[in-house]
Design a protein around this nucleic acid. Structure first.
Lengths: 169, 169
DNA sequence: GCCGATTCGTTGAGATCTCAACATTCACAG
DNA sequence: CTGTGAATGTTGAGATCTCAACGAATCGGC
């Protein structure tokens, strides 16, 4: 009745499972150890740092950081405690909240970024050939498409790291 | 100073991040919805089901299920509450504990497996071409190697499960 | 034998995530 | 203007994960 995975598929699936778990756990550990920022929170800071005014509606931030509303709400509360993010009420929509990255938050991100990028290189890009990197991009893109209807045409700028001015003015 | 990710690398990294997060969250949700088994626990049950006597030392189980000792200890406690696993003290090493999958636990796994395998096919294998599947296996294997010194020569059988296991993973 | 170092598995505290429920506000058809 | 339905963001409870510390048992050199 059920079509089980054949040995090759089994091996593929388990390798994929193992690789992703190892990579993300390692990066998370490094980020936690070197900068005391959980990986999920780092994502949030990055998305905010890229946005105009370094601020975003909570819902937009949730979409971009692959986070549920609830998770984001809890997370931003912690980030606010740390003084890295502030919440402002939205003028045009009184339901809305706007999360803004503070200078202090940007500084924390700027401090954490180099180490994290190095980790990503060390654990992901360096072990792979250029061709494999290209393959990985195509495969990942395909998987995202398959799972996300993606009505948006927001070609996520995905720009550089906290680049440009690591010095908040 | 820091070598940031160029636009292509950036895109690759974010696609990888997005794809893995989407895939695993989706599979986890489905598993939880259809069988009330968290993905992490499912892994544990699968590894036990494959082992001889359907039982393993805690440390061996931790290795095979990519779990920390602590996490496994907590998880097995919950699985024991459900009646899916039993713990026995090890005869040859009094420090050791042996986790054994109960018939009830095996039944729960057997009930959950078909739906999970279908999900893995739907969200991972079906969207990819055969060549991409092969690429994904090689890439994943490489990443695991890079991150795990792997002093063992236990060529983790990873193959099919011995007898009667419905096991997809 | 013996003692220090290591391994095993557990535990508790704290942090994060998920899920469902909720109040508030908006959109819009009537 | 009004009421219904949808959307926003929050909250609390419960579940899981991480981390550090721990007791018990084993190992290894002497």
């Amino acid at each position: 009745m059920t079509r089980w995975l054949d040995p090759e598929e089994q091996q593929t699936w388990r390798a994929f499972l193992g690789a992703t778990q190892l990579v993300f756990e390692q990066l998370d550990r490094e980020l936690q150890r070197d900068s005391s920022i959980p990986h999920g929170y780092y994502e949030i800071l990055v998305r905010l740092s890229e946005a105009p005014e370094r601020s975003l509606r909570m819902s937009a931030l949730a979409d971009r950081s692959q986070s549920s509303r609830s998770r984001l709400s809890h997370a931003v509360a912690r980030l606010e405690d740390k003084g890295w993010v502030r919440r402002e009420t939205c003028a045009s929509d009184k339901r809305g909240q706007i999360a803004r990255l503070t200078d202090q938050g940007f500084a924390a991100l700027a401090a954490a970024a180099p180490g994290h990028v190095a980790g990503v290189r060390r654990h992901v890009f360096d072990p792979l050939t250029p061709d494999q990197v290209r393959q990985l991009r195509e495969i990942s893109t395909r998987l995202v498409e398959a799972l996300q209807p993606e009505p948006e045409c927001l070609a996520t700028v995905v720009g550089q790291a906290p680049t440009a001015s690591p010095v908040p003015s």
